[in-house]
Write a protein that binds this DNA or RNA. Structure first.
Lengths: 220, 220
DNA sequence: CACAAATTTGAACAACTGGTAGAAAGATAC
DNA sequence: GTATCTTTCTACCAGTTGTTCAAATTTGTG
């Protein structure tokens, strides 16, 4: 185990790099996205830096040239999710649209983020206890701001009379967010449903409900 | 702080042991429920057996008299959740009720489980990758069976014409389950909402939707 | 009291953890 | 070629992990 044939993996010396590049370039982005997958699958606490390095075909030591420490990787995952989420939603809320349309677009946006950044999203809603210091507080805050946008849309709809006041805006918001966020538990990119179709159905469910309209007195 | 008066519920065998036992008895149930809270808060991978033992005022070694190993604790958490969930739902589905009523009761049941067994539920939906072997497969199966009950209710409603066919039953099910399961992320037992009220609003949302009924042509 | 069974202890263990230091390799420019 | 800078590797540290186990302790019973 100690005496290994180092000749087998001997690094090619000089210029001839015509062969396939054995070693993929190690970047911060690659580390973060590899870590996101591992964190999503095994959890932050159970994933070691060795695991991450191995997955990238590198060694633990190399990681530390690109990242500060383990928590720093987690930080980058959170920033990645927030960067993809916040701005588009803020634009939708600010746009001059009827509440039903705002809700539809907001759901489409959120579902799309959840679907495309699936591992990072899983981590986002699972590993926040492992963030410490001021950054942890910042994330909680930004998450609340994000969720508040949805609540605003619901409230707007209620004020305009298009959404029922019988349902508490806060609970409605938690409900619709749960619906979307739960995607990360079952959505498969290569599955039978596109995220567009899922978003459309979620919107229909939330706006019209499951019940068929009471048999309208429509004489043929 | 350590010694609770178990005398109140003590089955009191023969000799009168009216005095309080100095050391709280270490039981499998106590271990599992303490572990559930810690797993929910810090994650399975980041929670050590020392943490669990310390919380119970015992030592790590003592745990092994009551449980086989760490994964065994997790197993018990899963069994606990399933035991509280499966049977009541099966009864609701089998009962001779209209689909809308079945849906309402199923949601009420599920929300109540999620609200009362909060830490265990959090663990249930978060730590399944840490289950290994045949037991892991069994859990996946039973979870699917459980979720299938909800799907059945939706399909039943569609067949009866009371639920719209425009919404895929599978997606509707994932949506409503997400709504309920997300509770574990925000529900606080001492908060402003009882789980009954939450369930009622979720049901209203899912059945009628958020939209106010189209202004009925109701003169006067 | 004694005696046995049930329970807990505390130490030991091998394996692994996140993190660090420094040498070595590779690339780039002169 | 030499010099410089970036990137990766090896080796190691100090601490923690899950697990085992013989010995000590507590408990129930006669």
């Amino acid at each position: 185990m100690v005496a290994d044939e180092s000749a087998t993996t001997a690094p090619r010396k000089k210029t001839d790099r015509s062969n396939a590049p054995r070693r993929a370039r190690l970047t911060q982005k690659a580390i973060v996205s590899a870590a996101a997958e591992l964190f999503a699958r095994k959890g932050f606490g159970a994933t070691s830096l060795d695991d991450i390095a191995e997955r990238l075909g590198a060694t633990k030591g190399a990681l530390y040239y690109h990242i500060k420490n383990k928590e720093d990787i987690l930080r980058h995952i959170y920033l990645m999710v927030l960067a993809a989420s916040e701005e588009p939603l803020a634009e939708i809320v600010a746009a001059p649209l009827p509440p039903t349309e705002k809700l539809a677009r907001a759901i489409a946006h959120h579902v799309s983020v959840a679907a495309n950044r699936s591992p990072a999203m899983t981590v986002f809603y699972r590993e926040h206890p492992h963030l410490t210091g001021p950054f942890a507080r910042e994330i909680v805050l930004r998450k609340k701001v994000y969720e508040r946008y949805f609540e605003q849309i619901v409230e707007e709809g209620q004020a305009a009379g298009v959404f029922s006041r019988a349902i508490d805006a806060k609970i409605a918001t938690f409900g619709l967010l749960g619906m979307c966020n739960w995607l990360s538990q079952w959505y498969q990119p290569d599955g039978a449903y596109t995220h567009q179709r899922i978003a459309a159905m979620f919107t229909a469910m939330l706006e019209q409900g499951l019940l068929t309209p009471p048999a309208s007195p429509d004489p043929a």
